[in-house]
Computed example of a mutant assay.
Amino acid sequence: MLHDSFSRFGERRLPRRLGQLYLGLALYGFSMALMIVSGLGLDPWDVFHEGVTARTPLTFGTVTILVGAAVLLTWIPLRQRPGVGTVSNVVVIGIAVDVSIWALPSPGGLATQALFLVGGVVLNAVATAAYIGARLGPGPRDGLMTGLVRRTGRSVRLVRTSLEVTVLAVGWLLGGTVGVGTVLYALSIGPLVHVLMPRLTVPGDRRPVGTGVR
């Protein structure tokens, strides 16, 4: 929660948490750009973002920011409260992906495309574990999922699958790229994040400092 995140600003580990959060978000945007430039397929939400980008004059990063902000608004009826990491997620990833798309060279062939894709998926997992492990708030899309799970009583698997299938289908219809990268991401991102999370989660302070609120 945003209030809870700021109430912990006296923690000894706060500099690491903030640094890890913003490095993770910037890396997430870079990993997205690698997959986009590869042209071999995107994760479901990015298929949707690319589809909207194809139908508007907006950049991919701008669409990512606007969709993230719109998803964040759905937290209100779900009674979710964002953390500082949630708000940062909406803005930083969108800026990072646009800068990275501009800076990355076009892949010269299938081998380079495959390298971009695999690198993008692996770095995306590192980035996800890093920003979640900072413990400063989930991303807006994850918060939507957990809010729906709590309000509907349905399983995480059902809610997440329903959301991702919906945005994937809409994105594909709008012109987003679905391909081998979409399948690779779906099969590998969960196991990769599972392995990385324990290594990148910042432990809580044993003795809170400052306000004492945990």
Score class of each variant (00 low, 15 high):
Asn124Lys: 13
Gly51Met: 10
Ile93Lys: 01
Gly119Gln: 03
Arg17Asn: 07
Ala96Gly: 06
Gly83Ala: 06
Leu72Asp: 05
Gly190Trp: 09
Val149Ser: 04
Gly108Ser: 12
Ala111Val: 14
Thr128Pro: 08
Leu27Glu: 05
Phe60Asp: 09
Gly39Phe: 00
Tyr185Lys: 00
Val92Arg: 10
Ser38Gly: 02
Leu144Tyr: 01
Phe60Thr: 12
Ser5Trp: 04
Arg55Pro: 10
Leu58Asn: 07
Asp142Cys: 00
Ala70Ser: 12
Pro208Asp: 03
Leu196Lys: 01
Val92Phe: 13
Ala96Val: 06
Val92Trp: 14
Gly61Lys: 05
Val99Ile: 14
Leu73Lys: 08
Met32Pro: 09
Pro208Asn: 02
Thr128Glu: 12
Val180Tyr: 02
Val183Arg: 01
Ile93Thr: 09
Val202Arg: 06
Gly94Val: 06
Leu196His: 03
Gly24Gln: 06
Tyr131Pro: 00
Tyr131Ala: 03
Arg207Gly: 11
Gly133Trp: 05
Asp142Ser: 01
Arg79Glu: 14
Gly68Met: 05
Thr211Pro: 09
Gly181Val: 00
Val159Asn: 05
Thr53Asn: 14
Phe116Met: 04
Val126Asn: 08
Ile95Gln: 13
Leu21Arg: 06
Pro138Cys: 09
Gly68Tyr: 05
Ile95Glu: 08
Val180His: 00
Leu173Ser: 11
Ser7Val: 11
Ser100Asp: 02
Gly94Asn: 04
Arg79Phe: 15
Gln80Thr: 09
Ile76Leu: 15
Val156Ser: 12
Ser31Glu: 08
Leu163Arg: 10
Val121Leu: 02
Ile95Cys: 11
Tyr185Thr: 04
Ala54Arg: 15
Phe30Met: 13
Met35Gly: 08
Gly137Ala: 04
Ser88Cys: 10
Ala114Asp: 08
Leu2Asp: 03
Gly68His: 05
Gly171Arg: 05
Trp75Lys: 02
Val156Tyr: 15
Gly210Ser: 14
Gly10Asp: 02
Thr182Ala: 00
Val195Cys: 11
Leu187Arg: 08
Leu136Ala: 07
Leu25Ile: 07
Arg13Met: 13
Tyr22Asn: 10
Phe9Cys: 13
Leu34Phe: 03
Gly153Ile: 04
Val149Glu: 06
Trp75Tyr: 05
Pro198Ala: 00
Gly143Phe: 05
Gly210Lys: 11
Pro77Trp: 04
Met197Val: 12
Ala114Ser: 12
Val180Cys: 01
Gly108Tyr: 06
Gly139Pro: 04
Pro57Asp: 10
Trp45Thr: 11
Ala134Pro: 02
